[in-house]
Every structure is written in C-alpha cells, then in structure tokens.
C-alpha cells in the first residue's frame, strides 16, 4: 500500500514540474503538434489523478479499500465516533483528496458555463452587427477597421472577420485565415483550451499551469496553421501572418504606434510554415503515445486495485 502511494506521489511530483518543463522546452512538438497536445492533456489529467490518488491511497490505508473506508467513515458524519483505526493523517489526506477533486470539477464547470454565456452573447451580437460573407458559409464580416479574425466555437459556430482584415489581406490570404479558423472549430480546440484554462484558474499558484496553458495555445495555433496549409498551401497563411502578426501593415494600425503581437510565437509559426521540419519518426510517435497512456492509466489502475 505504501509502495503504491509512493509511486503515485512520485508520479504527481514528476508531472507537476520536471516533465512539463522538459516538454515546454522540447523542439519536437512543432513537428507533431497533435501528439504533443495529447501528451499535454495526459500530463494534466494524469497529474491531477496521481495527486488525488496518492491522497486516497494514504487516507484509506487503515481499511485497505475505498469502498470499505467510505462505509466505515460516511456514517460517522451523521452520528457516532470516527473509527479508531483512522488517524488524523488519514482523515486529512481524504479531506484533501475530496476537496481537490471537487475544486477541480467546480472550476471546470464554472469556466465552461462562463464560456457558454460568452458565446451566446457573441452570437447575438454577430447576428445583429455583422453581415454574412458571400461565398463562405458561417462566416461574417464586422464593420470595424482593426484587422482581426476570430471564431466562436460551440454547437453553432461562426467565423468573424473585420472589414479592416478584409481590406488588408489578399483573397488567398483571407481564404487561408478562414481555413485556419475553421480548423480551430472542426478540431474542437476550445475544449482543450477550456480544460487548461480551468486547470490554471483552479491552481493559480501551481508553477506549471501558466506554462502549460501557453504551450497548449501555441500547439492549437500550429494545428490550425496545418489545416490552413492543407486548404490553401503554406504561402497565403504565411503572408497573412507576416502582414498582421509580425510586420504589421503600416496603414492598418494607423496612428496606433503598431501592434506588438507575441513575436516569439508568430516567428515560430512562420518558421514552421516556411520550412516544416521532418515529421516525427514512427517509433518516437508510438513511444510518446505509450507514455501518454501510461501517465493516465497508472493512477487509474492504482485506484481500481484498492476499490474493494
């Protein structure tokens, strides 16, 4: 029992710091962004499960099983003394495990509800303030000079371009931008981002949460870039990114002093579009996938072992 708790504790610590730090510094995610995105999700999920699992294993040690401990402890809430074999350490561990699980779940629910409210509001505004773009389904043009493109995910989706963007980009570049947004929508990137956003909000003091959220954001951009590349080739999107992301169009930002986007990210995306590195080898892919599965499966199996 102690060995399982120690294993989960080590896994939780590894997934909380060294593993994500190494992943955020690695160069291969740009060559396999989908796989890297899956690995980030496994790290976040596996980390949370290991942390909770470690506490559960420690807390249920006197009885040896989760169900048995629940049967012994839950009646004590209503009436009667807490069974003597459960000491302070066990009770604290179980309280922390339950608290952490509830905290994470509530944060996810609250973030999802807020995002849903925001989307509904966006659809209302889009329906009244924007015009449909001819020839592009579910794409709307907003009469505003600041060049911007974004998409509203959900059951009903919309891609919104501003007049400023339409004026600055060539037709090919515009098609590439729409394909980029559409890839975000088709691959449900908002769900991954939502989970990491919730995780970050639930554990703001957690050193790795910010880094993870950032890495995941960049990976979804790269996946959307790949979608645009499949639709229009790399050149139009690189052109659009150059014009908006890095160089900025002198006329587009008028007397604003220029916009400073996240130069590093845009440069990384541009470099990738200009010369995509060799795709990650088959063996490395399989190894990464196995690691992702093991990370999530270990705490799950450990908890299943002591369920009864």
């Amino acid at each position: 029992m102690l060995a399982i708790a120690a294993l989960l504790g080590v896994l939780a610590v590894a997934l909380a710091w060294p593993v994500p730090v190494a992943l955020s510094r690695a160069e291969w995610p740009a060559r396999a962004p989908g796989l890297a995105l899956a690995l980030w999700q496994a790290i976040a999920l596996g980390g949370a499960l290991s942390m909770i699992g470690c506490l559960v294993v420690v807390g249920t040690a006197p009885d040896g099983s989760i169900v048995g401990s629940a049967e012994a402890l839950l009646p004590a809430f209503a009436s009667g003394p807490i069974p003597a074999e459960f000491g302070v350490v066990h009770l604290v561990a179980l309280t922390l495990a339950a608290g952490l699980a509830v905290h994470l779940a509530l944060n996810l629910a609250a973030t999802a509800a807020r995002a849903e409210r925001e989307r509904r509001r966006q659809h209302q505004l889009i329906a009244i303030l924007s015009d449909p773009m001819p020839g592009e389904p579910r794409t709307r043009v907003l009469a505003h000079p600041v060049p911007l493109a974004y998409c509203v995910p959900g059951l009903r989706t919309a891609t919104v371009l501003t007049e400023g963007l339409v004026a600055v980009l060539s037709p090919d570049e515009l098609r590439a931008v729409v394909a980029h947004e559409r890839t975000h929508l088709e691959q449900f990137h908002h769900l991954v981002l939502l989970a990491f956003r919730a995780w970050h909000q639930a554990l703001p003091w957690f050193p790795i949460a910010n880094r993870a959220e950032r890495a995941v954001t960049v990976l979804t951009e790269m996946l959307a870039d790949d979608g645009a590349r499949r639709a229009t080739g790399a050149a139009p999107l690189a052109g659009a990114l150059e014009r908006l992301g890095v160089a900025g169009e002198p006329g587009a930002y008028a007397d604003s002093g220029g916009v400073e986007p996240d130069r590093e990210t845009v440069e990384a995306r541009l470099a990738r579009l200009r010369s995509p590195g060799p795709p990650l080898g088959g063996l490395a892919r399989i190894a990464t996938a196995v690691v992702a599965v093991v990370i999530v499966a270990t705490p799950l199996v450990a908890m299943l072992m002591i369920i009864r």
Binding site: R119, P147, V152, P153, E181, Y253
Partner: peptide
C-alpha cells in the same frame, strides 16, 4: 484566454491587447 473564442492574429499578450484597446 477564456476559450470562448479563438483568434487569429498572434496569441494574445497583454501588450498586444492593450495596444489594440488603445486604438
């Protein structure tokens, strides 16, 4: 980065959105 929306130009940084907001 509330994940309600995703956007194209770069990834959002405080400096960038501040400038756009000023504009």
């Amino acid at each position: 980065r509330d994940a309600a929306l995703a956007r194209f130009i770069g990834t959002a940084t405080p400096g960038e959105t501040d400038t756009l907001r000023r504009l």
